[in-house]
Amino acid sequence: MISVGGYYCSGRSNGHHLQGVAMVISNRLQSSVVEFTPVDECIMVMRLKLAFGFMSLIVVYAPTDVCKLDVKEMLHAKVASVLDRCPQRDICVVLGDFNVVSGCDRAGYEMSVGPHGSGADAGSKNRLLFRDFARSQKLRISGSWYQRPNPLRWMWYSDVGNAAKKIDHILVSTRWRILQNCRVYRSAVVPIINWLWLPSGSISKLPSGPMITLGCFPWTG
Rank of each mutant, 00 (worst) to 15 (best):
R47V: 12
V189W: 03
G119F: 06
C86V: 10
F52W: 04
V113I: 15
T37A: 10
K205D: 15
D40Y: 04
P115R: 13
G53V: 02
R12D: 05
N150I: 06
V172D: 01
V59F: 08
W197K: 08
P63R: 03
S173C: 06
G123H: 12
R127C: 04
S208V: 09
V184C: 06
C42V: 00
N194S: 14
Y7G: 00
T174C: 14
M211G: 00
S158F: 05
G11H: 12
V59K: 09
G117F: 05
V33K: 04
Y146Q: 02
G114V: 05
M44P: 01
P210G: 08
L179V: 12
V39R: 09
G20R: 07
R131P: 02
P149T: 08
D70F: 10
R85H: 07
I2C: 12
V113K: 02
V60E: 08
L152A: 15
D121T: 09
C9G: 11
H16P: 00
S31C: 06
V4L: 11
L196S: 12
S81E: 11
L214R: 01
V113L: 15
I43F: 02
I43A: 02
S102Y: 03
D40N: 15
S202E: 13
K78G: 00
N27W: 00
D70P: 03
K72T: 06
T174S: 12
L129S: 12
C216Q: 10
I193A: 10
W145G: 05
W176R: 06
T64F: 02
H17A: 12
T174E: 10
G119N: 08
P63Q: 04
S204E: 14
S10E: 07
L50A: 04
C86K: 01
H116R: 02
M23Q: 13
L57C: 04
K78Q: 14
R140K: 13
F217V: 08
R47H: 04
G201T: 07
L83Y: 01
G221E: 09
L179T: 08
F98V: 03
V113P: 05
N27M: 07
G96V: 06
P115Q: 10
N162K: 10
E41A: 14
C86E: 02
V113N: 04
P87I: 00
V93Y: 00
D84L: 09
L50N: 03
D65M: 15
V39F: 12
S118N: 13
K138E: 15
V82C: 14
P191L: 03
L139V: 01
G123V: 06
S187W: 05
K49R: 15
V33D: 06
S208A: 13
E110N: 07
V101M: 13
P149V: 09
L57G: 00
M1H: 14
V33L: 13
E110W: 02
D159Y: 08
L214V: 09
R153V: 13
G117D: 09
I193C: 12
S200D: 14
Y146F: 15
L69Q: 11
S81V: 00
L179G: 10
I91R: 04
L179D: 05
R135M: 12
V4Q: 13
L128E: 14
V71T: 14
D105C: 09
I91M: 08
R131W: 02
P207W: 10
L57P: 02
L95R: 01
K78D: 07
G201C: 06
H169C: 03
A134Q: 03
Q19V: 05
V59L: 13
W176L: 04
E73L: 12
R89M: 09
R177E: 11
W154E: 07
